[in-house]
Simulated assay, not measured.
Amino acid sequence: MNLTMFFGKIKTIGGIMMNNTHFIIERIEDKNAFIKLCYLEKSFYLEKQEEEWIPMSRLLVDSDEKQLIYIVEVGQEWKYIRFPLSVWKSLDEVIAKEQDLFLVLSLTEEGEVHKSIPLKDFSQEGRELIRNMLNNMNYGEGMSSIIEEEFSETIK
């Protein structure tokens, strides 16, 4: 799925009903040796984000879609930040090096970061989730081997 957000898809992941707004991470870039920034699709930044985004320190996996999901609270609802397989190698570095990961919420007219929030406990939650998924067939056929390949630095 190549959309920033989608509505109406209801499924259960990790015991949580997933019927709120979802956002897909497009890319992850280094800010410095200790921080990485994750960006949503450009269309997200066309709308001003007025409400406060609160990181929930919760990381889940959608093994059907091969995506990790970080939960943030915005107003009275949860928003799901989805990390597709295409950015997992960058997440491997974040987790293995215990770097901070920030979600970019707004950009200046020049395209520079204006506002971002830390995705609290991402490295710790990611490490625990990856360890749980290794050699665990409950996440679906082949998922363990994908985890071994994509998160090789974290597993060392």
Rank of each mutant, 00 (worst) to 15 (best):
E153D: 14
E153K: 11
E125R: 14
R131Q: 10
W53K: 08
R82W: 03
K11Y: 12
S43C: 14
V72F: 06
K89W: 00
S123G: 14
M133E: 04
N2K: 08
I10R: 11
I54F: 07
K97C: 10
E150P: 00
Q49S: 12
I24C: 12
A96D: 09
E52T: 14
K9R: 12
L103T: 01
F83A: 03
S152Y: 06
E41W: 14
N136D: 15
L134H: 08
E26W: 04
K48G: 00
P84G: 10
N32K: 06
I28T: 01
I28W: 05
S116H: 07
L105C: 06
K66S: 12
M5I: 06
E141W: 15
L46F: 13
V113P: 04
L105E: 09
K31D: 05
P55G: 10
I81S: 05
T21F: 04
K156P: 04
M143G: 05
I69M: 10
K11C: 09
K9I: 03
E47S: 15
K89S: 09
W78T: 02
S43M: 07
S145A: 11
G111A: 10
K156T: 06
V72H: 04
M5Y: 12
E109C: 05
S106W: 07
W53V: 11
K89L: 12
N138P: 00
E50A: 10
T154N: 04
L68M: 15
K9L: 07
Q67G: 05
R82Y: 03
G140H: 05
S63C: 13
E125P: 00
F102Y: 15
E128G: 05
E29F: 03
E149Q: 11
Y80K: 08
F44Q: 02
L85A: 10
V72N: 11
F6D: 11
I95K: 06
N2E: 09
M56E: 14
E41S: 14
R27K: 15
E112H: 13
L59I: 01
G15E: 02
L103E: 09
E50L: 14
S145R: 09
A96G: 11
N20H: 01
I16M: 06
A33L: 04
N32G: 04
E110G: 07
E26Y: 12
E51C: 07
S86E: 12
I71T: 13
F23P: 00
Q76G: 12
E128T: 12
F34Y: 09
W78Y: 14
N32M: 05
R82M: 11
E128N: 10
N136I: 03
N132C: 13
K120N: 09
I16F: 10
M56P: 00
E51G: 02
G14S: 10
L101A: 06
G8K: 01
L46K: 15
E73T: 11
K9C: 03
R131P: 00
M137K: 15
Y39R: 14
V94R: 02
G126R: 01
G140Y: 02
I24A: 10
L107K: 14
Y45D: 02
R127N: 13
E26S: 15
E65N: 14
E128S: 11
M143K: 07
D100P: 00
I35H: 11
F83G: 02
W88Q: 03
P84H: 06
H22Y: 13
